[in-house]
Amino acid sequence: MGVNKPIKVLWDIPREERFAPGHSMCQGCGAAITMRHLAKIMDKNTIIAMGTGCVEVTTTLFPRTSWRNPWIHLAFENTAAVASGVEAALKALSRKKIIDDSRRIKVVAIAGDGGTFDIGLQSLSGMLERRHNVMYVVYDNEAYMNTGIQRSSATPYGAWTTTTPIGTKLRGKPQPKKDIITIALAHGIPYIATANIAYPVDMVEKFRKAYEVDGPSLVHVYSPCTPGWRIRNEHTIEVARLAVQTGVWVQLEIIEGEPRVTIKVPRRKHVRHYLRIQGRFRHLTDSDIETIQKMVDEYVEKINKWVGEEAIGPVVE
């Protein structure tokens, strides 16, 4: 099943497209890039469960679909429960010889940050705790983009959204982003990773490993949203790369609880390079940016301590 050999270079990524064109996602959509590459590691024997969100509404407008695999959507908060039901049914029907057991059909659950960090957190926790053999992918565009840019618990500190507007008393989101990786880790699942569309080889290799794992896995994908982040369509990859280069986003892989950084950054860029390219941060003052720089420094220090090496280096201008 899936792709059998490790993805080490760009041409190791399968040519086959299981995510069909013709969908209505935005130009420069990070989630579209995520979906296309995710679909590449699936083979025919994959069932997809998806939560309500941008990807769901833009890829399945009846009677058309972008999905070349069996695909099911019920609602917003229950992607993991739907995936649990699919997986349990496959198990039972394989055991009863109604489905050929040798097919080893894999279940992939896909949801956005709102459907995972917020409204779907309980259902995700249940699925991870029950040890369903499901690969869970969260495409994180850091707000409720499908409804028009409302803050979620994945929205970063200081970001403008329509529900964290820039006013005279409040300026952007006052709270930092929720740490979904640590939450997943607390469930003791075999495979957890963060991935980023600017690093496709690393991302697809992580998809491949998460898919191959027998048991629950979670891949958290950084997926920029051009209208929501107020960025130019051609800046999607640039913003995604800067997130890694500034240490705002760290490329992690946690196998059986053992963490490592897969994309090391010996010399970090100052966070202003990341913030200044995005309209959602345009209101930030130099002092706000320094506050965020400190938050990033603390995060990087925590990660380095955790992985036991200086995987992410100091800021060097």
């Binding site: 069932i47 469960a49 739907v82 649990s84 039901g85 699919v86 349990a88 049914a89």
Partner: peptide, 9 residues
């Protein structure tokens, strides 16, 4: 949610 999904299989 889970039983609807199981039924769909």
């Amino acid at each position: 949610s889970a039983v609807v999904a199981a039924s769909a299989v």
